[in-house]
Structures are given as structure tokens and as C-alpha cells.
Design a protein around this nucleic acid. Structure first.
Lengths: 194, 194
DNA sequence: AAAAAAAGAATGAACATTCATTTTTAACAT
DNA sequence: ATGTTAAAAATGAATGTTCATTCTTTTTTT
């Protein structure tokens, strides 16, 4: 196998192990030694790929955030009508949060903790732009409520994080019907009332 | 001062220090020694009040969750009409999350991390019953959408956590108008459409 | 003066990171 | 193709620190 590919594989294994261990034990209880073991690598090797533990977790965060937004906008096209475009993005995000549960949980933990450096946090936000653009357009057309993007995100997207967490905790399972109800709630909360 | 009161004060100081340090540094970076120092107490004294670090953080979680729900339902009366009752509870919760930011942040961190024992987590949920009862009644009366409580919570209440976090991060400030918009979004997402 | 509470220092374990070697890679010569 | 070798990558075992917890002594309470 090519040298480069081996390096990439090893880095990916480290990132994956970090996600899994942080999800299950929390940042405070995932030592480098365990990450190394799970990635089948010596502890010392981690330091060939990352500066230190903080750098490892920062980079993991950015990687996962990039996955998330790539997935969210994969089949979105900025020329779509507002309602259709929103539904498409929303359903992709829902898919991601419920199917790529590991990723979504990791993000939830990072986003509610002082675990990630401010700089990496900023880096992670950038990729959300297409959604903000869609809302901008929707407001102009009078389809979307003319309120802060933060409020729109809080109501249209963030609830999915909560639902993902309760689903993960086993408290209940979102089926197709629930998902449709959730979508309707999301849309109701941001669309202009007639 | 009475012995009992002194004990209570000391315990409260420890709980308060825990909240503050965990909020600012994360669980992984708040050693017992710092908690002790901030509470103006010897590290050894912590162990007179709590079994160990895990117990300290569990109890802190339960304390804060109790504060939260006490505040939320302080002036709610189960005989109120649905819409009015919901508005009252919602606004109290909003108040709490935005004014008692320290508490709310701590809860957000606990709720998205494996930092708290499952048992304490269950304990914390209990106090939310009045809201679930209100929804139950609302569904019977055809005022509230007949969907899972988890989905109702995800849309009606949880967005406030997100807004609290962005407000805390300094990204934007919720003023009275925003709050009213947010309330309308919350209500829109759970009320039956006519 | 006995009991309870609190303190500071001590203990031992766990951890992030680095160090000294070993193993692997790949460019080149045969 | 195969052997040679220098550089790169990887390793396991240190290292020194930090931390939760406990121990012994001192202070406070009753």
C-alpha cells in the first residue's frame, strides 16, 4: 500500500477512536493511551499526526463538522424553490443525525462543552453558509419569517440534536411518522403564517 | 452561626464552585483542588460532604435541575387554560435560561456528556411532570398536536438551550422582541393548526 | 475534655508527552 | 530482480507532572 494511504488510514483510525471513546466516556475519561490502543497504534505515534491531545480533538471536531455539512448539502441546489430546498436540507440533516449517530453525538458534546478551541469552533461554523443563504432568500420572498438566523436555526434544526440524543438514550425511537411530524413542526416554526 | 447553617453554606459553596469551574474549563479540567480553593475549603473537606468527585458532580446536577424546575413552575397553576399555562411556563423557562445562565450552561453540558450517572439523570427528569401533564390535557382538548412529548419538548423548549448558548458565546443577544418571536415559533410548532 | 469538623501534607495511581531504539520504506546500485 | 543503506515512521518504555483521595494533626464545637 502506498505510504500516503497508510498515513491517511492511521490518522482516520485515530480520529475514529477519539470519537468513539469521547462519546462513551467523555473527554475527561479518554486518555491518549486508550485512543492509541483502539487505533492499534503506539501512544507515541499519535504525536506524529497531532501536536497534542487538544489538537487531536480540535481536528476531530473540524473533520466531523465537515462530514456533517457535506452530507447536509450533498443534493441541494441553490436554485431550488425555498420550501423544497429547505425540506431537502432538513431531511438530509435528519438522516445524518439519526443514522450517523456517532458523529452527531460527538458534535453535540463538542458544542456544549469548553472542550474545543474557539478557533476550531469558528472553523466549523463556516460550512453552514448555504442554509443561511437559503433563509436570506426566503425572507426576501416573504416565505420565511424575518427573524434572526440564530432563532431560525434554534427552531428548525437544533431540535434534531435533542431528538438524536433521546433516541440514543433509548428513551424512544423516531420512526418515519415521527420524522414527518418533526419536519412539519420545523417548517411551521419558520415559515411565514398566512 | 448554627452548625447546620455553616454546613449548608459550605456545601453550597462547593456546588457553586463546581458549576463555575465546569462551565469555564469543562469537567476534564476542573480538579478537586481548584474546587476546594474556590470554595475556600481544604480538599479533604470536600470528602466530608461528598463521596468522591463523581458524587459531587451528580449532586450538583440534581441540585441545579431542581432549581430549574422549581423556577419553571413557580407561578403555574394546573387549572389554567392550556395556551395561557404554556405561555407562562415557557416564559419562566426562558427567563431562567437567559438570566440564570450559569445554571443553564451547566445543565447543557451535563445533558450532552457522559459526565453524569444514569441514575442521577433519571432523578433530574422527574420534576418535569407538570409540563407533560399540561401537554396531555392539551392533546385531549385538541389544542396541542397529538405527537410524542419528546418531539414537543424538542421544539417547544429545547431551542431555548441553543439560544442561551449562542447568547453566552456573544454571537448575539436576545432582546424582548426576539424573545416574543421565539415564543411564537415555539407555540406555532406545537399548537394544532386550524 | 471528648467528639466532630476541618486542615494541610502525603500517597499512589494515572496520565500526557518525550526519549532511545527498532522497524519500515524507498531510492539507488548491482 | 536483489541487496544496500540512509531517511522516515513507528514503537515501548521512561519521565515528570497532576490529580483524586487518604492520613495524621490541629482547630472548633458542645
Amino acid at each position: 500500500m502506498a505510504k500516503l494511504q497508510k498515513s491517511i488510514d492511521k490518522r482516520n483510525a485515530l480520529v475514529k477512536a477519539t470519537i468513539e471513546l469521547v462519546n462513551n466516556n467523555g473527554f475527561h475519561a479518554t486518555p491518549m493511551s486508550k485512543i492509541a490502543k483502539m487505533a492499534k497504534v503506539s501512544p507515541a505515534t499519535i504525536y506524529l499526526y497531532f501536536e497534542n491531545k487538544q489538537d487531536l480533538v480540535n481536528q476531530t471536531y473540524i473533520d466531523v463538522k465537515a462530514e456533517y455539512t457535506k452530507y447536509a448539502f450533498a443534493n441541494y441546489d441553490p436554485t431550488m424553490p425555498i420550501k423544497e430546498g429547505f425540506e431537502m436540507i432538513w431531511k438530509r440533516i435528519a438522516d445524518f443525525k439519526l443514522k450517523e449517530c456517532e458523529y452527531a453525538m460527538f458534535l453535540a458534546q463538542c458544542d456544549n462543552t469548553p472542550m474545543i478551541d474557539e478557533e476550531s469552533r469558528q472553523e466549523g461554523i463556516k460550512h453552514l453558509q448555504p442554509l443561511l443563504d437559503l433563509w436570506e432568500r426566503g425572507k426576501k420572498e416573504g416565505v420565511i419569517k424575518p427573524i434572526s438566523d440564530y432563532i431560525l436555526y434554534a427552531y428548525a434544526i437544533n431540535p434534531l440534536s435533542f431528538l438524536m440524543m433521546t433516541q440514543k438514550s433509548g428513551a424512544f425511537t423516531l420512526d418515519k411518522t415521527h420524522l414527518e411530524e418533526a419536519y412539519q413542526s420545523a417548517w411551521s416554526s419558520i415559515k411565514m403564517c398566512k
